[in-house]
Computed example of a mutant assay.
Amino acid sequence: MLDGRLPAGSRLPGSRALAESVGVSRNTVTHVYEVLSTEGYIEPNRQGTRVAALARPEPEDRTHPTPAVPARRTGRIRRSGPGAGTSLAFAPGVPAPAQFPLAAWRRSLDGVLRQGGTELLGYGPPQGEPALRTAVLRHLALARGMRCTPEQIVITSLRIGFLVLPEPLVDRAAPVVDELLRGGHRHEQLALAHFMESGQYSRHLARMRRLHRRRRDALRAALAEHFDVPHTVTGGDSGMHLTVRLPPTVPDRRLAAAARRHRMAPRPLSRHSLVPDSGHNGLVLGYGDTPESAFAPNLRRLADLVKELD
């Protein structure tokens, strides 16, 4: 699928036929199809299962490698604005917290606290709780096709992230991990392990992907219908935002500041450029936590603000 040998729209065999042809159980094939569907690689419907349209990066030009950006240029990065709250429309990078299965997460937390008690308030293994490392390993194997060992996985306690170390670095990184990490948030790590192993995590991801695809498509349609300003729309293959490029005559930073006064939080595209006056002009519109019903009125207001800036 990724290299194009199965082009978009190709119909895949049914689970029974595929299971018989490769010599595995039908349940195995069904599970693989579910994972591929969750990840957006295939699209099942009543007429069958077909390969989804996948975005492919441009081939890398290795004859003219891009030089590394000098560290001094990082000093040109400026804050794009105050952090947007979830009550502001079009805030990029904001998910839909109301969609999180809070009751299931609370059950996971309560369960591990009942079982582990106050012992979980202390420090655990610096590289992370074994149960969570195993859960992450299984998730990576099913969702990403990655093959690794629990020893390669390191849990970072801040907001609970993880690293997958290259195998040759595992032993060399051990003293660094032991010194720098303290294995905190044990109850949250164990709760997340239970949350993942119970299937809640993958189901939540699947729900959010469907929600984001629906909102992305609705925002594209709303821009075409309600934003009567010359523009082009790019992005949408990843993340939770669309980029709306505007004519150079529209001052995107002034437009974003005016929008904030009307409870909207798009980011000016020019703020994301390391090179001043690079021609990157427009707005970054987030759709993660903005309901479809809010698209049309806010886009009409944005169009009015553009005209007011003339």
Rank of each mutant, 00 (worst) to 15 (best):
2 L>F: 13
2 L>K: 08
3 D>Y: 10
6 L>M: 05
8 A>V: 05
9 G>R: 03
10 S>K: 03
13 P>W: 00
14 G>C: 02
14 G>Q: 00
18 L>K: 00
23 G>F: 06
27 N>M: 12
27 N>K: 12
33 Y>G: 01
33 Y>T: 04
37 S>F: 02
40 G>L: 05
41 Y>F: 13
44 P>V: 11
48 G>K: 00
49 T>E: 01
50 R>W: 09
51 V>D: 02
53 A>H: 14
53 A>N: 14
54 L>I: 07
54 L>F: 01
55 A>V: 09
58 E>C: 10
59 P>M: 12
63 T>A: 15
64 H>G: 14
66 T>I: 14
68 A>H: 09
69 V>C: 06
69 V>S: 05
71 A>G: 14
72 R>M: 09
76 R>N: 15
76 R>S: 14
88 L>C: 09
90 F>N: 02
99 Q>L: 15
104 A>Q: 13
112 V>W: 00
114 R>Y: 10
117 G>T: 10
117 G>K: 04
118 T>M: 11
120 L>H: 04
122 G>V: 10
124 G>F: 03
129 E>W: 07
129 E>H: 12
130 P>F: 06
135 A>F: 02
136 V>H: 01
139 H>W: 14
140 L>K: 00
142 L>F: 09
143 A>V: 07
145 G>T: 04
149 T>P: 06
152 Q>G: 03
156 T>K: 07
159 R>S: 15
161 G>D: 12
162 F>K: 03
165 L>K: 02
166 P>C: 05
166 P>Y: 03
171 D>H: 11
175 P>H: 00
175 P>F: 00
176 V>P: 10
180 L>D: 06
181 L>Y: 12
183 G>D: 06
185 H>R: 08
187 H>T: 11
188 E>S: 10
189 Q>H: 10
191 A>H: 01
196 M>A: 15
199 G>S: 07
200 Q>N: 15
201 Y>I: 04
202 S>N: 13
205 L>A: 10
205 L>W: 04
207 R>M: 14
209 R>C: 13
209 R>A: 14
210 R>N: 09
211 L>F: 11
212 H>S: 14
227 F>E: 01
228 D>A: 13
230 P>L: 02
231 H>C: 05
231 H>S: 05
232 T>D: 13
237 D>F: 10
238 S>Y: 10
239 G>K: 01
240 M>V: 15
242 L>K: 01
245 R>Q: 14
247 P>E: 08
247 P>M: 11
248 P>G: 05
251 P>W: 00
251 P>M: 02
254 R>Q: 15
254 R>C: 11
260 R>T: 11
261 R>N: 03
265 A>N: 04
265 A>H: 07
266 P>T: 06
267 R>E: 15
268 P>M: 04
272 H>D: 12
274 L>T: 14
275 V>G: 08
278 S>E: 11
282 G>T: 07
289 D>S: 12
296 A>Q: 02
297 P>F: 03
301 R>C: 09
302 L>M: 10
306 V>Q: 01
307 K>R: 13
307 K>V: 11
